[in-house]
Design a protein around this nucleic acid. Structure first.
Length: 335
DNA sequence: AATACATCCAACCGCACGCCA
DNA sequence: GTGGCGTGCGGTTGGATGTAT
């Protein structure tokens, strides 16, 4: 027994709203409120819209308390911080930003913030530096594979890297601090002010993505079976590994955030150091992971995973998990 | 000036959840 | 406990607009 549709699709108008429609909807809601969206198009004379469409129009555009226009730096900070904790739970994030809707936040993330983070050398999914991810992968590979890791990763993050290397519009300039030639082994690095958070499935997803690209990046002669435990590296870095990480424009140690950490290039930026170093802690949260590169079937699969993730609880903070300097009232909504 | 390409964002879609009879 | 219903949510799409060639 399926649900009845919310409206007769043939009899409703779709697409952009006209000012006349906006007026009709606004005046109706001003008089009657928003109790039953399904009834609104029936009762608001001449409004041939699906109730769902009316609700969306009202909540995302017409509501008088909405803030239109550019996101401020502080709003962006909040979005990035919260995204690193709760993932793509846009309504939760939007609830912390007065006058912003989940759609606003989602769009801003997808069009601006993701690129901004990538441009800073941070994976927008895991909120960890690309070099960290590379380091973690490298420890599991045989040297012949490690030699091609950079190529594989560059394939995976082609868009991000292109932005980083070619686009002048990226707001942040990266600096490569002198004295840090190599990347520290994976793991906590409190000295650099960066803590590796708990293992997350997001990170695994990214790592898997790079791993899958390895065979393509490797010539056949190098394409050896996975080494797994054959080449125990335990945090040691090989020459090849060092080379790989230097391929990326930043290293863990040189990667700093905020006015106090960016040095000359980032002076004045209100982006804080803690902002981008956490993980997406939501259990199994995988929605929105480079879906373009997957087939439709995989999309479905991911959607399922994402939906399940919505049911799961938010990150449980422990000693390995980043502790955010979020205000109490902000955190209360997350638990 | 014309065309191609990139970006942005409003709107749509399908599913999940909570309420209520 | 069950099913219908309204609503909320996140992913995706497509048209409008901007930019590059």
């Amino acid at each position: 027994m399926g649900r009845i549709p919310c409206c007769e699709k043939d009899n409703v108008k779709r697409g952009q709203w006209t000012p006349e429609e906006d007026n009709k909807l606004s005046s109706y809601i001003a008089q009657h409120g928003t109790r039953n969206w399904r009834l609104i198009p029936k009762n608001a004379a001449g409004l041939q819209r699906c109730g769902k469409s009316c609700r969306l129009r009202w909540t995302n555009y017409l509501r008088p308390d909405l803030k239109h226009g550019e996101f401020s730096e502080s709003e962006e900070q909040i979005i990035v911080k919260l995204h690193s904790v709760v993932g793509n739970r846009w309504s939760l994030i939007a609830a912390q930003l007065a006058g912003r809707t989940d759609n606003d936040v989602k769009n801003h993330w997808n069009t601006k913030l993701k690129k901004k983070l990538s441009g800073m050398g941070i994976d927008p999914i895991t909120h960890k530096p690309f070099s960290h991810l590379m380091a973690e992968i490298a420890t599991t590979l045989a040297p012949p594979q490690v030699a091609h890791l950079a190529e594989a990763a560059l394939g995976c993050f082609k868009d991000e890297m292109l932005h980083l290397l070619t686009k002048k519009r990226v707001d942040f300039q990266l600096q490569n601090t002198a004295g840090y030639e190599t990347v520290p082994p994976p793991g906590n690095n409190p000295a650099a002010g960066i803590y590796i958070s708990q293992e997350s499935e997001d990170k695994d997803d990214v790592i898997q993505k790079i791993n899958l690209s390895l065979p393509r990046a490797m010539p056949e002669t190098d394409n050896l079976p996975p080494s797994n435990n054959i080449w125990p590296m335990n945090g040691e870095t090989s020459d090849a590994f060092t080379g790989i990480c230097s391929t990326f424009p930043t290293t863990v140690s040189s990667f700093q955030y905020g006015a106090t950490s960016y040095g000359n290039n980032m002076a004045g930026s209100p982006w804080s150091q803690s902002m981008c170093t956490g993980s997406t802690c939501t259990d199994g949260d995988q929605q929105g992971h480079s879906l373009q590169e997957r087939g439709k079937d995989k999309d479905r699969e991911d959607a399922e995973i994402g939906k399940n993730a919505r049911k799961s609880t938010t990150c449980v903070f422990n000693s390995d998990c980043v502790l955010w300097d979020l205000s109490d009232d902000l955190m209360n909504t997350l638990v």
